[in-house]
């Protein structure tokens, strides 16, 4: 009986020591940002999945979700690492399961919000070519061209494609006409983003769309304030120094709040209104190019295997 108790206590003591080491290792692991070390080629993964492609696709999708989620919350240094692995990861997920529509959509939105427009377009175009016939893919490419590149002609073409997809609302064809006539307004961008937001099922993607909604609100307010400045200057005959003059002259009742938490300021040299904390403004580009429908993987399988 005594030897049994001794063995039990020895076991307990050893387990306690092992747990201390284990917790120390776990803590070190938690302090490191979540990263994906290697993304295998889609072709190799399809064969290696041995009939469980959607299952393996889901495992990599869960990895992509963690990758996105940690960068969004800015946990540790993850937010500084950027989204370098997101496109290869979602490319792999959709190679394994080309019908994973939500993966194309989420990656497209997150990459666009991170300023990686080419990558966003690439994965959304892949979705248009190989994925389910969702209207959100061309719709969001249209948004990228319109809002971030100021290329209304290309944006209009993608909006037209979106309007012809099943489930697309009438607002999309109105937007296509508006963009084609080069009069796309921030109000339409807000409507577009709200329609997109209604299709997402998670907080992370909705959060990304909210950030873009703020940009659209900023652009709407700035354009309104610039019109008011022009009106006041026309009345007075001399330039204004600050936006507060608009309120004092009763051109507008109040300066709207900056959606990014700063305040709107008038930059006389540029003759533009900007947010004090976010320098974004919509820049219109002349011309445009035809949408290309040939999906090109960001790198060859061989290149990815060697990485």
């Amino acid at each position: 009986m005594r030897s049994l108790a001794l063995a039990f206590l020895t076991g307990l003591a050893l387990l306690t020591l092992a747990s201390v080491l284990s917790f120390r290792l776990a803590e070190a692991h938690l302090n490191k940002p979540y990263d994906v070390l290697h993304v295998p080629s889609g072709r190799a993964a399809r064969v290696a999945a041995l009939g469980h492609r959607t299952f393996v696709s889901d495992l990599y999708w869960l990895s992509a979700v963690q990758y996105i989620g940690e960068r969004r919350t800015g946990k540790g240094k993850a937010d500084q690492l950027g989204f370098d692995k997101l496109l290869p990861l979602v490319d792999l997920v959709t190679d394994l399961d080309p019908r994973h529509g939500y993966a194309y959509q989420t990656a497209g939105i997150v990459l666009s919000a991170a300023g990686r427009l080419h990558e966003s377009d690439t994965i959304l175009r892949k979705g248009m070519e190989r994925g389910p016939p969702w209207w959100t893919f061309p719709y969001y490419i249209s948004f990228n061209y319109w809002f971030y590149r100021g290329d209304l002609a290309t944006a209009a073409r993608y909006a037209e494609i979106a309007a012809r997809k099943p489930g697309a609302s009438a607002n999309i064809s109105h937007l296509a006409v508006s963009l084609a006539s080069k009069s796309g307004t921030p109000e339409e961008a807000i409507t577009l983003l709200q329609e997109l937001k209604a299709t997402v099922k998670d907080e992370v993607t909705a959060g990304r769309l909210d950030e873009q909604l703020k940009l659209a609100v900023l652009e709407r307010d700035a354009q309104m304030l610039e019109r008011a400045v022009a009106e006041l200057e026309k009345q007075r005959g001399w330039p204004i120094a600050t936006l507060e003059e608009l309120v004092m002259a009763r051109i507008i009742p109040a300066i709207p709040p900056d959606p990014f938490g700063g305040r709107y300021v008038w930059i006389g040299a540029e003759r533009r209104v900007r947010s004090s904390v976010n320098s974004f403004r919509f820049e219109l580009q002349e011309g445009g190019h035809q949408p290309g429908f040939h999906y090109q993987a960001p790198e060859t399988n061989k290149e990815r295997m060697l990485r």
Binding site: D58, V65, H100, K201, T205
Partner: peptide, 11 residues
């Protein structure tokens, strides 16, 4: 995951 919970359960 976010969004596609059903497919993860089934897979």
């Amino acid at each position: 995951t976010f969004g596609e919970q059903y497919r993860v359960i089934v897979d």
